[in-house]
């Protein structure tokens, strides 16, 4: 694979036309927009796919939905909060923002989701299922998870991911990027590409 661009975002990033979206989706879109600066996604380059990788997904929004359930009732929860708690909402927002009509995939793994995303992107590029792939990694910290870390046996990989942010890389076929045996820190890995 060869790197075409990369971008990063944090929870303070503002994204146009995403007022109703949660921070998880906003960060994913912001990082992806920065990563595709040099691509003409809206006109010529149609065969672009998206892989969003995460360990824990938009769990802050899931907790917000649980707040809805506890504070109101099962019959009066917010449909907007619910739809954003679905893991692939962020990838959907990236597709809409960049008008990408190729494959859109969201994957989770507690062990090494970014490595899996790169392996899959490589497979798609090698088999011409995509000419370019946006790989976006997103995590969001939350009090329940931070507290749980002290009491539970989180996979060792998770310790690098209790942070809030998004990192995106756009790749095409090539030999520049070698997929490592293990991506110890996904944010640093994309930064150092």
């Amino acid at each position: 694979m060869e790197l075409l661009g990369k971008g990063f975002a944090n929870k303070d990033d503002k994204v146009k036309n995403m007022r109703r979206a949660d921070n998880f989706s906003k960060m994913a879109v912001s990082a992806s927009i920065k990563a595709v600066t040099d691509l003409d996604t809206k006109n010529k380059e149609k065969n672009i796919s998206i892989i969003l990788a995460t360990q824990f997904g938009p769990h802050v929004t899931t907790f917000k939905f649980l707040d809805n359930l506890l504070d109101y009732s099962e019959n009066s929860v917010s449909p907007t909060v619910f739809s954003h708690s679905v893991h692939n909402a962020a990838a959907s927002y990236i597709a809409s923002a960049l008008e990408i009509i190729g494959q859109t995939l969201t994957i989770t793994s507690f062990i090494d989701p970014l490595k899996q995303a790169f392996i899959l992107a490589d497979a798609w590029l090698e088999t011409y299922q995509a000419e370019k792939v946006i790989i976006c990694y997103v995590e969001e910290e939350s009090a329940p998870f931070t507290e749980s870390q002290l009491h539970c046996n989180f996979p060792s990989y998770s310790k690098h991911c209790f942070t809030t942010g998004a990192a995106a890389a756009v790749v095409k076929k090539g030999s520049q990027i070698k997929i490592p045996m293990e991506v110890t820190n996904p944010f640093t890995f994309i930064e150092e590409l």
């Binding site: 679905v86 893991h87 995939l105 793994s109 899959l120 088999t127 299922q129």
Partner: peptide
């Protein structure tokens, strides 16, 4: 081999089969 969860909402079960095909193909 790898173990991966697909969280593409209601198409996840189909997309998992698609990923399986990619893994075998590659």
């Amino acid at each position: 081999g790898p173990g991966l969860n697909v969280v593409n909402a209601c198409s996840s079960g189909s997309d998992a089969i698609g990923i399986a095909m990619s893994w075998i193909d590659q």
